[in-house]
Structures are given as C-alpha cells and as structure tokens.
Write a protein that binds this DNA or RNA. Sequence first.
RNA 1: GCGGAUGUAGCUCAGGGGUUAGAGCGCCUGACUGUGGCUCAGGAGGUCGUGGGUUCAAGACCCAUCAUCCGCCCCA
Length: 420
Amino acid sequence: MPYQAPRGTADILPDDINRWQHVEHVFGALAASYGYREIRTPIFEDRDLFIRTSGETSDIVTKEMYEFVDKGGRNLALRPEGTASVMRAVIEHGLCPQGVIQRLFYFVSFFRYNRPGRGRLRQAHQAGIELIGATGVQADAEVIEIAATAAKSLGVADLVTTINSIGRSEARAKYREVILSHVESWLRDQTTEAQDKARKNPLGLLDSKDEDAKKALVGVPSILEFLEDESKARFDKLQQLLTDAGVSYIVDPMVVRGLDYYTETVFEGVSPSLEGLSIFGGGRYDNLIKAIGGSATPSVGFGMGIERILLAMEANGLQVSAYKPDVFAIAATPDAETTVLRLAREFRGAGLKVTTDPDVRSLKSQLRQADRSGAEYALIVGSDELSKGTVQIRSLATSDQTEVQIEQALREVTSSKVGA
RNA sequence: GCGGAUGUAGCUCAGGGGUUAGAGCGCCUGACUGUGGCUCAGGAGGUCGUGGGUUCAAGACCCAUCAUCCGCCCCA
C-alpha cells in the first residue's frame, strides 16, 4: 500500500457518512431549537491563543499541539479544541458586547498529538455549543440539558451525566493545598516528572486512574467543602434546575476536567460502554475571554466527541439507515440509452434519486446492480418499449412489473411511492 | 512518551523454512437469445505492510521501520 491515512486520522467512508450526517443534523436542530446559531472558524490559529486558553502547563500545550511556522514566519497551531477559536472570533467581531447574550454552536475537527486508540484520534471531531454573556446558573443548566439531550437522542441510552463545582480560583487554591498535603507521603516516592505534574495541577490527581494514586487519595475531603457560600448556592440551584428539566445526573466531586480555564460548574457525560472515555465535557469559563484580551465576559459551553458518540451509538445498537436510490434506470438494449438518460433526468427533476449503469452492461447485470443498490424500482426500456413508447416499472422487492406509457411513468412511480 | 498483541486477495482469515501462496464471503462472466436475489460452472484479483539481514531456499526466522488494535498517560 503506497500511502495510508496518517497515524491517528481516519477516512469517513460512504457507508459511514449517514451516521455522521445524522449526528450533525440532530445536534444542529437541537441547538437551533434553543436559539443557537452555527459558527465556523479556521482550522489553525496563532499558537499563542491556545497557550493562553488551555494553560501553559497543560498536556495539550506542552506535548500535544500540532505547531508550525508558515512562510511568513508566523507561529501557528492546528486547533486542539473548539472553544478558543470561537472565543477569539467572538472578540474579534464584537459578537458579544456588554449585556448581550450570544448562543453559538459548531462542528470542528481538532488535533492532538497523542497516542491513538479506541475513541482517541489525532484528528477528531467535536460538536459543541457556547453560551456567552450570561452569568446566571440557568445558563449552566441549559447547556448541560442540551448536552444530555443530544447524547440521549443520538441513541446513547446508557448515558451518565456527572456534575461538579470547582468554585472560584480562591477556593481552588485552598483545595489544591489540601490535596497536596494529603498525598505528600505518597508523592515522595513518585518520579520527579509525576511530582512536577502533581504540583502544577493537583486537581488532575483526582481524575487519575492509577490505583496507587487512587489509594493515596482515599479520605481526601471533597472540593465541595471548600466552596464559598455563593458557589455552594449556585451548585444547589443548578441541581434544582436539572431536576426540574428532567435531566438525570450524579454529583461527582472527583470530576475536574483537564483545561485550566474552567470555573464553578464542570460536567461530563460518559457511557458504561465506553470505559474511560468521556462523550462530552464542559463547564463554565468566566475568565477565558478576558485572558485572551476581551472584556470580562462570562461563558459556559461543552464539546461532544463525535467519534465517541458514534461508538456509544453503536454499543447501544442504534442504526442509521443507509443511502438508497429510489430508482435504477436500465437500458435493456443499447439503442435505449438516450431515452433512459432523459427519463432519469425527468425523475430527478421531480426529486427522486435515480442511478444508472454508465457502462450499459447486460440487462441481467444492470438488474443485479439495481438490486444491490437497494433501489425500490427498476425502470427498464429496450427496443420493444422504444417502439411502443412504453417503459417497464419493476418493483425490486416484489418483482411486480407493469408496462406503462412513458409519459405516465413518473406519475405511476410517485403515486405508488406515496401509496406505499 | 511507555507496555502488550497484530499486519497474507476488496473483507474475514488459514498457511509457522522446501515446487507455481489458499479458503469463505464479495466482484465479473456464463448456464438463462430481454429480467435481480437462489443454485451450479468458470474467471479476475496478491510487490505476503516496508527496508535490510540469516539461509542452497524466507510469507514463515532475526533486526529495523511504518501502521492498526488493547492498556497507561491525556482528553473529546
């Protein structure tokens, strides 16, 4: 094989495309029903933008970004997530001036140089929404509701939504110290790299799947105990709103998310069928816009991994119907070719999906192709029909075949389709 | 970045040093002079992932490399 798709990338083949379109359609329609509008941003940005948003010390920035210098000497990077670009666009185009609430959704490819595996790619796809300009907790609830509803209506029946609050930065700073002192003796036996990492981001330890780390964390108090009163009240109201909305959730104080920019509410969606992978993840990030040079604007949003949704859909047994033409138009003899092509065009003009055999092979072969294509009807014209001005309409499911005047063919097919 | 498994036909896989590399499915043609699916017969399709090495002889053994899958890390 001379060339293969680069490591960690995947082609989306015609047999799979219906599933992708289904996801995009369902997600887009849902977001639109809440008043969100789509935004599309470039696939690469100033490298610095992502450093500002994801955090200098985050894994994404330190080892997972696709970076390059263009011929003009600009330091650029393929986007490693969706939010930063959207926020940059919001600032650049003044989409969210003081007092305005802006609702946006997007579908993007994003790029991370990591080790590919099940549900983990180097180029992956994400659907997401951003609710910008709203401070109130109702916004958090709306966003979580959309995430959970999207996943459920896409067939993730076993979705588990977990929520947590990581409070304001003051509360987090206090809590970080608590964690570090709790695991101090364990940390001493770790590699310097692990120690470094733990010191830079103690909250990250909570997410760890390492058994020893988990053991060391036993008995660590919950971050919820360190929240300020306002944060606590906010988190209580969030739960109230979600319950009212009929969104089932569990509170998990261990959910912290990896990006530096989150404040207060964080959440994620997982499926038991996709162990260790989150389907969606998001939260509130009130400091993000300010951090990249905009005026302080509160925001909340999430990203949902499309590949992961598809895996979970599959695990939950959801099928999406494949493309099938309505009609396969056949020239039984070569002299009928132009008539068949004209007929096909007429049918297409009426909104039907019509395919032909460009090689005009034998009738038998064309019928075989028609059968395989999944078409509902075969239209057959040969020299006999040509001289009579007729066409054979054959149902491929029942083998019923009727001969009608060629001008009647379209009406015949559309009426029986409606009737069926 | 670390550990493990795997790369042979379009797909799923057999072959584990010895002529010309196989099966099932799929594809094409025919039996059926103008009628698909079922059956039968025939046919096309392979630089055995790639590059080195060992050997009289390598798809097989060794080394490297690339890729895929499963864990870890990280996350969507």
